[in-house]
């Protein structure tokens, strides 16, 4: 008997932390696992190089939603660099359950979406991106 569905996982699924929409997000990204229909939108409010605010919305399985809830708690207050360097094995430790290979994508969706949101931030902040937005 696996114990994937421990009480704290189910608790995060039923009442996810940081679930909602930011009015003034600096960056935002929508990630999905097309195979299972999991979908997460991750929003970050960056101030002074820190993740000052973070919020997510979406729907999906207990693992993907609990993972997003735990991860957003974890990165709140982190520097942008530290958040971008957050690793998959750290998230798995945070989840604290044995994830089978078939469910790994569910667990990792939140982190992939966070990484993509931070990458969007880099792209929009780079001189090349700014130049591209200027009228020709």
């Amino acid at each position: 008997m696996d114990d994937l569905y421990r009480d704290y996982i189910l608790e995060h699924y039923r009442r996810p932390h940081n679930f909602g929409v930011l009015d003034d997000a600096t960056t935002s990204h929508e990630g999905s696992n097309p195979l299972c229909g999991d979908r997460i939108t991750m929003q970050l409010g960056i101030r002074d190089g820190k993740v000052a605010e973070v919020a997510f919305t979406g729907r999906g399985c207990a693992i993907s939603q609990a993972s997003a809830s735990l991860l957003t708690d974890e990165v709140k207050g982190m520097s942008v660099e530290a958040a971008a360097a957050y690793r998959a094995d750290e998230l798995l430790d945070l989840l604290g359950i044995d994830i089978s290979p078939a469910r790994l994508k569910c667990a990792m969706l939140s982190l992939e979406t966070l990484d993509a949101a931070l990458a969007d931030l880099d792209a929009s902040a780079s001189p090349a991106a700014v130049a591209a937005e200027e009228p020709a």
Partner: peptide, 22 residues
């Protein structure tokens, strides 16, 4: 409010194989 992957995963504990997804 229960994702079909979670349904299938728990059913597997009881030896029951169903498909979940699209």
């Amino acid at each position: 409010d229960i994702h079909p992957h979670d349904v299938a995963q728990i059913l597997d504990r009881y030896g029951i194989a169903v498909r979940a997804g699209h």
